[in-house]
Simulated scan of single mutants.
Amino acid sequence: MSAPAPRPYAVLGVVAVGTLMSALGGSLIHVAVPLVRRDLGVDIGAASWVLAAYSLSVSALLLPFGRLGDRHGKGRVYAVGFGVFGAGSALSALAPTLASLLAARALQGAGAAMLMANGPALTTAAFPPTQRGRALGLQATATYLGLSLGPSIGGWLAQRAGWHAAFWINVPIALA
């Protein structure tokens, strides 16, 4: 077991941003599905795959990306996750068809899986045992903040600027 990080709250800050971003990514588009349906000319069954593509990708890739982090470094996989998630978000925002949107959402979910699989381990490694519970609680708070704010932010953006705008919000976060 390695020693705690010299700046554990900096590690927690980066992990919390990734956690918040991936939770937002999962929940931003929920209320905008009717707009996606209308703009892309698809029925509700087809449009529901916009939500499912992200969730299925995260679910299928969470364990493999955790293992990849064990083998090649959790920090490295986590950092790549930011890039993959940001690329998936940008491609989702630019998607002209349902098929391209679904592929972009699956890519976004893959990035989220990289973040979700390795974030708690990075937080745990950064803090001494006496502070880990608090640190993991703060990370969980970032998750639920993203899940709570996502529908409101996504709905507001979709109403003002179209459903594509809901995907752009995570791109600058991922880049930063």
Rank of each mutant, 00 (worst) to 15 (best):
L101P: 02
A103V: 15
A135L: 03
Y54Q: 14
A60E: 01
A32Y: 09
A112S: 12
F127G: 14
G150F: 11
P34I: 07
Y78K: 07
L122K: 02
A103N: 03
F65V: 07
L102G: 03
A113E: 10
G109M: 07
K74I: 02
G133P: 09
R105M: 12
A32M: 11
A52L: 14
G150E: 12
A140T: 13
F82C: 14
L138R: 13
A79R: 10
L122I: 00
V33D: 02
L28H: 04
F82G: 11
V80Y: 01
R134K: 09
A32C: 11
A121N: 06
G119E: 08
R37L: 03
F85W: 09
G81T: 02
V42L: 04
R67K: 06
H30I: 11
G83E: 04
G81D: 06
F65C: 08
L68P: 02
A46F: 00
V42C: 02
S55F: 00
P120W: 07
I29E: 03
S59P: 02
A112Q: 02
G81P: 07
L63S: 00
S152V: 13
P64Y: 12
A99W: 10
L149K: 10
A113V: 06
T143E: 12
S57N: 11
H72V: 15
A110F: 00
A104R: 06
S152T: 14
V58G: 02
G66D: 06
V36K: 03
M114W: 01
A103I: 11
L61W: 10
V42H: 03
M114V: 04
G45E: 12
N118D: 13
A126F: 00
A112E: 03
G133Y: 00
G154A: 01
S100V: 14
M114H: 05
L102S: 07
I44A: 15
P128K: 11
G146S: 04
A104C: 10
G137E: 08
V80H: 01
A140V: 10
G154D: 01
D39I: 13
G69W: 04
G133K: 10
S92C: 15
A60P: 00
G111M: 09
V58M: 11
F85P: 06
F85I: 08
V36S: 05
L147Y: 08
L68K: 05
S89C: 08
V33F: 04
A140R: 01
A90M: 12
S148K: 14
V31P: 09
L115F: 04
G41I: 10
I153C: 00
D39S: 12
G41P: 03
S100E: 07
G75L: 01
S27I: 08
A142L: 10
A90R: 07
T130K: 13
S92H: 11
A125Q: 13
A53W: 04
V58R: 04
V36L: 08
G88S: 09
